[in-house]
């Protein structure tokens, strides 16, 4: 599903993002990428959604070699991947419904499809009663659930969650992790980037540990080892 083949990402020639990473994430897996700040976790997430380009090596998503992806093809790639961010990244001038619908609108879904699918997804994340609210009228946990709904609505095969619990209290954080597990149980590949030890240890899923841009451990059912 996702292949990093000897991938190196350098910033400004000599600042290492990630170095010589080779790994494969299979379809339907739940993978946690852990490491300290600056270890290259977010760079990996950014490489998957082509927010950053590979300096050396090869990257494949599904059957698509995105190593030298054209700028015009990036929107097409992103429509096939759901992304959840630590700082939510909701559109402030759109309601909950409109934020979720936006992911479908960009891919050209019809209004009938949007009216049918968005309420279903909002129900999954428990926000069906708050669909007309604006982001600033929601709590942090609710905002993150809107982001998850937006990342799910176009039924992506991959969901990349970059520190999704970073701005949440422990109860809301657990809710979000439960939601990610549920999404994974439907067959979606989930890549969770985190430095939350508790979350990683309770998941008992595959853990890839990074240090200074390199993979130092890849455990099938691992724990936070740093």
């Amino acid at each position: 599903m996702i292949t990093f083949d000897n991938v190196t990402k350098l910033y400004q020639k000599d600042i290492i993002g990630v170095k010589d990473i080779s790994l494969t994430i299979s379809a339907g897996e739940f993978v946690s990428i852990v490491g300290q700040s600056g270890s290259g976790k977010t760079t990996m997430a950014k490489l998957i959604i082509a927010e950053e380009r590979v300096t050396k090596g090869r990257m494949v998503i599904g059957d698509w070699d995105i190593t030298h992806i054209k700028h015009g093809d990036v929107p097409m790639l992103r429509r096939q991947i759901g992304v959840v961010f630590q700082d939510f990244k909701l559109l402030p001038r759109k309601t909950v419904f409109e934020n979720v619908a936006f992911a479908l609108e960009v891919s050209g879904a019809t209004n009938t499809q949007i009216k049918s699918v968005v309420p279903q997804v909002l129900k999954i994340v428990g926000l069906e009663s708050k669909q007309d609210r604006f982001p600033h009228q929601l709590s942090g946990g609710e905002q993150q659930r809107v982001v998850i709904a937006r990342s799910l609505v176009h039924r992506p095969k991959i969901l990349v969650a970059d520190e999704p619990t970073g701005n949440l209290d422990s109860i809301n954080a657990q809710d979000i992790i439960d939601l990610l597990k549920r999404i994974n149980s439907f067959g979606t590949t989930v890549v969770l980037v985190t430095h939350n030890r508790e979350v990683v240890n309770t998941l008992r899923k595959r853990v890839i540990t990074l240090d200074h841009g390199q993979v130092i451990a890849d455990q099938k059912s691992g724990k936070y080892i740093l």
């Binding site: 959604i49 927010e51 015009g72 990036v74 929107p75 097409m76 790639l77 992103r78 429509r79 992304v83 961010f85 990244k89 909701l90 559109l91 402030p92 001038r93 936006f102 992911a103 960009v106 891919s107 937006r150 176009h154």
Partner: peptide, 12 residues
């Protein structure tokens, strides 16, 4: 920021 978010969600 709004423009960046739209792009990350897959808008052309």
């Amino acid at each position: 920021e709004e423009i960046g978010i739209m792009k990350l969600v897959g808008a052309s």
